[in-house]
Computed example of a mutant assay.
Amino acid sequence: MEFSPDNRIVQLCMQGMHLEEAGKYEEAGKIFLQAWIEATNDFEKFMAAWYVTRRQTDETGKLNWYSTALRLALKLNDDAVKGTLPQLYARIAECYKQLGDIEQANKQQDLSLASVSVPSDKGPFYHGTRADLKIGDVLTAGWRSNYQPELVMNHIYFTALINGAGLAAALARGNGRERVYIVEPSGKFEDDPNVTNKKFPGNPTRSYRTQYPLKIIGEVTNWQRQTPEQLQQWRERLANNKGEIIN
């Protein structure tokens, strides 16, 4: 399933997160459980289970829900969720440790270390920008961040979701028109640590970064564009985001 902010389960999880930020933890727990009940596929159930776990007050409850999320993640075998496996195993290990089962805790910790892997996403990949480029050009690291202009980026970023690249183009600095290019990585790449296991478990936006050039092999013009109101909301969120960019 492709991640979408318009998805009902994603919206419920976001609603629960807002309640958590307001200190309304019991209400948040109810919303997360509602997301679990309404989930219609394994991806939605995986996401809902992750959040239900956050509101468990005892180790047994946490263990049960983390184990449920892990089972669903392994069943999905999808790049969007693989990034969460090390953290899931580590959290399950901590539950076993707190419950006094050191043997299982050590076993799960070993699985956590063993599950760290390089993304195997085959794309196609996209990069959103306002720069006017042509097929055969390459994109490289070393440019200033769109979100913190004083920061020179050590990586170049891209995504396997065309609408995500379209949003990046709309938010990019500059006066040129929004462009979404099809790109080809020339070297190894990794999950973008600025989004992986942050608000959502794993890397559901299939966002990546690389220190190697990206070659432009095409351009697309058709993607889901945000309304002016939605773009303003995104700009306000970015302006209010005080977290550091992992560079």
Rank of each mutant, 00 (worst) to 15 (best):
N175L: 09
V180P: 02
S186V: 01
D132G: 03
H155M: 11
S145I: 05
E184D: 10
I156P: 03
H155I: 00
L133C: 13
V116M: 11
E190T: 13
Y126R: 03
R144A: 15
Y157G: 00
A170Q: 15
G142L: 12
V118F: 06
Y126V: 02
W143Y: 14
E150L: 13
Y147N: 14
R177G: 13
V183H: 01
F125P: 05
I182K: 10
N146L: 07
I135M: 03
E178T: 08
E184Q: 14
K134N: 04
A141G: 04
A169I: 02
E150K: 14
G123W: 09
L171C: 01
G176D: 06
S120W: 02
Y181V: 07
D192F: 13
I135G: 01
F158R: 02
K122I: 12
T129L: 02
V138W: 02
R144I: 08
Y181P: 05
L171D: 00
A141I: 02
I135Y: 00
V138Y: 08
Q148R: 15
N194W: 11
D132Q: 14
P119L: 02
K122C: 10
F125G: 04
L139W: 01
D132M: 08
N163I: 00
P119Q: 04
N146F: 06
D121S: 11
T159K: 03
S117G: 00
V152P: 02
S186E: 14
P124Q: 06
P185Q: 10
Y126Q: 04
G187S: 11
F158E: 01
T129Q: 03
E184P: 00
G128C: 06
V152M: 11
K122A: 13
A165T: 05
A170N: 11
G174W: 05
Y181T: 09
A165R: 01
E184N: 12
I162P: 09
N146S: 12
Y181R: 07
N154V: 09
A165M: 04
H155V: 08
S120L: 12
A165D: 03
L139N: 01
G164A: 14
S120G: 10
G166M: 00
V138F: 12
V183C: 01
F189P: 00
S145T: 07
L139V: 03
L151R: 12
L161S: 13
K122M: 12
Y147P: 04
I182A: 06
P149C: 05
G166N: 00
G136I: 11
H127C: 09
N194Y: 11
P193Y: 08
D192L: 14
V180A: 04
I182S: 02
H127T: 10
E190S: 14
L167G: 07
G174A: 03
L161V: 15
A168P: 02
G123A: 09
Y181G: 07
